[in-house]
Nucleic acid binder design. Structure first.
Length: 516
RNA sequence: GCCCCUCUAGCUCAAUCGGCAGAGCAGUGGACUUUUAAUCCAUUGGUUCAGGGUUCGAGUCCCUGGGGGGGCACCA
């Protein structure tokens, strides 16, 4: 059976040890564990107990710990090893005269790096000052057939790190730390929003129509209904339906899916936070975003300051607010309001030094100027506000200025971390904007939004005035964990499918299944 | 889609001008009863991503294909 896996020599040697355990009547994958202490609890215990001075300062009570064997040094009739569990490491001190010849030989020959083991014994402190467990009994909990990556350099190969994240997590503590921080950040966000009276809701991933953003979707098919479904590209339209229904403050943290290119800032599946507040507006939402980011930052850094790619960043509110128009004008000298036509804005932008492709439409020129002149320099937190209406089909116009909408984007560390509006709630205006999108869709624009009549119907019941925010959780996590690549904050990033290699060759089943 | 870089033992990396594929870790055998990347002795392990070409000879040069990374384009 194992032959078809194409095992390497090292794997075969370990597999032989599995057989040897069974020949000795010992199950190398036992069903139960009897851990009494984590490594952290064991260490804490050592510092809180009375030591038995008659026994060389040993803890008189026997405890049992369990974990992965991460290091081994043997020295004749003694064996030192460290086990690692969820809380840290603990050194095991194993002696031939304590375990007996047979068990000592077993510890020496049948246990390897990477195995999960359970050790019972008494705590003591070694001559070199390390709290250790003087082991009386050692049990195999789970025999590992793969050797862990190299102990000093860890797993370096980027492709293997992503494809076999489990091996990356085993060998690289910094990688584990990033995902611990990610979890804390998400928890902090939930705490913050819950504390502000928001209700977490769950809206469909499988949607008969996709909407809420400009993006190409993934399409799937439901067999029993015999109809296509789209994987959501945004939560927006369903969360607004919730507000129509009377839930005043709602949020959702979920995966969105966009069928687009993959790069260091884009993953085909990514985690989105959207939150909507009835009777709020974009001013209210800016205040909320500042506080939310501060809360998340404190959760992982203990305060408002952290370092991103060598730059110190302080997220203490309030963050400065600047209109997009002013930001571009200050950085480039170009006032796009003074150039309402495509040709005029193009020549002004190019004169200022922008690199813009011929034929770029007016709103995209504004966007390019934002990207080239402004965005890279927004290291400290700032809100860019009041976007041209052409750039923002889903937002409400500014009172007194129909050419601009109430929209803001929070920028930190040279990148945007969200997008927010005073939400459009006029059903007929929304209908008109859908019809505009429909024209683009029919003209072949694959990113254009679909006409969602059910959403119009919902708005016709009345949606309260509201502010709404979308934030890319992955990008926020990148910022707070100082990672420059989105794949480094996603546990199992999407990769091109390949035949799986178990040993030194693809497994037989996989080769067959692959079909080429 | 285009351009550049990269792929060598389970892992981390070498290999000069094209000249016998190597080291460390891990493994295996041995010495060693408080070690800390333990040390010492011996030793196993290779489809050099795949296929083709040039050559007396290719890890190295050329072509085609694949994976991964970066950049551009696309995209919030």
């Amino acid at each position: 059976m194992a032959d078809s896996l194409g095992l390497s020599e090292l794997q075969k040697i370990r597999l032989r040890k599995v057989d040897q355990f069974r020949e000795l009547g010992v199950e190398p994958y036992p069903t139960r564990t009897r851990r009494t202490h984590t490594t952290g609890e064991a260490r804490a215990r050592w510092y809180s107990i009375e030591k038995d001075q008659n026994d060389g300062g040993h803890d008189s009570e026997e405890i049992t710990v369990a974990g992965r064997v991460v290091s081994r040094r043997h020295q004749g009739k003694t064996l030192f090893a460290h086990i690692h569990d969820g809380e840290g490491e603990l050194q095991l001190y194993i002696r031939r005269d304590v375990l007996g010849d047979e068990n000592y030989e077993r510890a020496l020959r049948l246990f390897d790096l990477g195995d999960f083991a359970q050790a019972s014994g008494n705590l003591f402190m070694t001559r070199s000052g390390e709290v250790s467990l003087h082991v009386r009994d050692l049990q195999m909990l789970s025999k590992a057939l793969n050797a862990p990556p190299e102990k000093w350099h860890g797993l370096q190969d980027v492709e293997t790190r992503y494809r076999q994240r489990y091996a990356d997590l085993i060998s690289n503590a910094q990688v584990r730390a990033v995902f611990v921080m990610r979890s804390r950040i998400v928890t902090a966000i939930r705490q913050f929003l819950d504390g502000r009276g928001y209700m977490e809701v769950e809206t469909p991933t499988l949607q008969p129509l996709y909407g809420g953003a400009a993006a190409r979707p993934f399409i799937t098919h439901h067999n029993a209904l015999d109809q296509p479904f789209y994987l959501r590209i945004a939560d927006e339209l369903y969360l607004k339906r919730c507000m129509v229904g009377g839930f005043e403050k709602v949020y959702e943290i979920t995966k969105d899916f966009r069928n687009e290119g993959i790069d260091r800032n884009h993953s085909p599946e990514f985690t989105m936070l959207e939150f909507y507040e009835s009777f709020g507006d974009y001013e209210r939402m800016m205040e909320t975003v500042e506080q939310l980011v501060l809360h998340a930052t404190r959760a992982v850094h203990g305060g408002p300051v952290f370092t991103y790619q060598g730059q110190e960043i302080d997220v203490t509110p309030p963050w400065p607010r600047k209109t997009l128009r002013d930001a571009i004008r200050e950085a480039s000298g170009v006032d796009y309001v003074a150039h309402p036509d495509q040709a005029g804005l193009m020549s002004a932008a190019r004169a200022a030094g922008a690199d813009i492709e011929e034929g770029t439409v007016w709103p995209r020129i504004v966007d390019e100027m934002l990207k080239q002149f402004v965005r890279p320099y927004l290291i400290q937190p700032m809100f860019l506000i009041d976007y041209p209406v052409e750039l923002s089909p889903l937002a409400k116009r500014k009172p007194g200025d129909p050419t601009h909408v109430e929209r803001f984007q929070p920028y930190v560390g040279g990148g945007e971390i969200g997008n927010a509006f005073t939400e459009l709630n006029d059903p007929m205006d929304q209908y008109a904007r859908f019809l505009e999108q429909k024209k683009d869709l029919d003209a072949g624009d694959l990113d254009a939004m679909q006409l969602d009549l059910d959403f119009i119907n919902a708005l016709m019941y009345g949606m309260p005035p509201a502010g709404g925010v979308g934030m890319g959780i992955d990008r926020l996590v990148m910022l707070l964990t100082d990672q420059s690549t989105i794949r480094d904050v996603i546990l199992f990033p999407a990769m091109r499918n390949l035949p799986t290699v178990i040993g030194s060759a693809p497994a037989a089943e996989d080769v067959l299944a692959d079909g080429n």
